[in-house]
C-alpha cells in the first residue's frame, strides 16, 4: 500500500508542478539579485539574502527562508488535505477500503506519501538553489551569521540539518491538513482549514498582545533553522521547535486516526 501511494504521488502531474513552482521562486529571486546586485539591507527581507551576493553556497538556506513562510506550507497543506478527502471526492476511497486496505494502513500510507512529498520538495529546493547560487554568485568559505567562517563540511552538515528541520516543521501542517482531510469529503476545505490555522498562527506570532500563547503556536519556531548557521549553533529554539511540532504531529495524527476508524464512509 505504501508503494502504491508513493507511485500515485510520483505519477501525479500536480506533484511535479507544485515542486517546480517551489523551486522556481528562489531561482527567480536569485536571478533578480544577480542581475541587479541590489541586496536587501542586512536585517531586512528574508534571512541570508543580504549575504548570498558574496557567497552562493549560502543560497540553499536563503531559498528555504524564502519558501518557508507561505509557499511551502500551502503546498504541503494542499497535498495533505487532498490525501483522504481527495479519494473520498473521487469515490476511490470506498474501493480502496473494500480491496481491503485497513484504515490504519491507509492513513499510514497517506502520511508517508505526504512526508515523501515534503522532503522531496525541501530537498529539491535546497539542491536546485545550491546549484543556482553557486552558478550566479560563486562560492567561497561560508560565513556564519555570527561572523566566523564555516568549513565546507560543516556548512554542508548544517544545510542538511536545516533541510531536515524545515521538513519536520512542515509535518505539523501536514498532520493538521491530514486530520481535516479525514473530516470532510472536500480536499479544498481541508487544505483551506490548515492554511487558515497557519495564517492565524502567523498573525498571533507577530502580535505582542498574544505573547502568552506565542510559544505554543505552530509557526513560532519555523525560522529557528537560521540558528543552525550561527557559530556555535544556538539550539534552544531548534529543540523547542522540534518538540512543539512533535506534539502537533502526534495530537492531530491521533485525532485523524480516531476519526477515520469510526467514520461511516458514505462518499
Amino acid at each position: 500500500m505504501i508503494v502504491v501511494e508513493l507511485s500515485k504521488l510520483l505519477r501525479r502531474p500536480r506533484t511535479w508542478v507544485s515542486i517546480g513552482l517551489l523551486v522556481l521562486l528562489p531561482t527567480l529571486v536569485a536571478v533578480f539579485l544577480a542581475v541587479s546586485e541590489v541586496a536587501p539591507r542586512p536585517g531586512t527581507g528574508p534571512a541570508f539574502l543580504s549575504a548570498v551576493l558574496s557567497n552562493g553556497a549560502l543560497y540553499p538556506a536563503a531559498a528555504l527562508a524564502i519558501v518557508l513562510p507561505l509557499f511551502l506550507p500551502v503546498a504541503v497543506a494542499v497535498i495533505a488535505g487532498d490525501a483522504v478527502a481527495g479519494e473520498a471526492q473521487a469515490g476511490t476511497l470506498r474501493y480502496l477500503l473494500i480491496r481491503p486496505v485497513g484504515r490504519t494502513r491507509l492513513l499510514v500510507a497517506k502520511l508517508i506519501s505526504v512526508v515523501a512529498y515534503t522532503m522531496l520538495a525541501v530537498v529539491l529546493v535546497a539542491a536546485v538553489s545550491y546549484v543556482v547560487g553557486v552558478q550566479l554568485f560563486g562560492s567561497g568559505p561560508l560565513p556564519s551569521t555570527s561572523g566566523t567562517t564555516l568549513s565546507t563540511g560543516d556548512a554542508t552538515l548544517r544545510t542538511v540539518l536545516a533541510v531536515l528541520y524545515v521538513g519536520w516543521s512542515m509535518l505539523g501542517v501536514a498532520a493538521v491538513a491530514l486530520f481535516l482531510s479525514t473530516m470532510t469529503d472536500s480536499p479544498l476545505a481541508a487544505a483551506l482549514g490548515a492554511i487558515a490555522l497557519l495564517v492565524t498562527s502567523g498573525v498571533l506570532v507577530g502580535l505582542d498582545a498574544a505573547a502568552s500563547v506565542r510559544p505554543y503556536l505552530p509557526t513560532r519556531y519555523w525560522l529557528a533553522f537560521v540558528d543552525l548557521f550561527r557559530d556555535p549553533v544556538l539550539y534552544r529554539d531548534l529543540v523547542r521547535g522540534t518538540l512543539l511540532q512533535g506534539v502537533y504531529v502526534l495530537a492531530f495524527l491521533s485525532a485523524a486516526w480516531a476519526n477515520l476508524m469510526t467514520k461511516d464512509i458514505t462518499s
Partner: peptide
C-alpha cells in the same frame, strides 16, 4: 479479499490508464 464489489458507480484515477488503475488496485491489498 474474496469479495468483488461495485458500489454506487465505478471510481478511478482519471489521469491514469485503465490498466494502471487496475494494477494499483491489485497492488494495494
Amino acid at each position: 479479499a474474496q469479495v468483488g464489489a461495485l458500489v454506487e458507480g465505478p471510481a478511478f484515477y482519471g489521469h491514469l490508464s485503465g490498466r494502471r488503475n487496475l494494477t494499483l488496485t491489485d497492488a494495494a491489498g
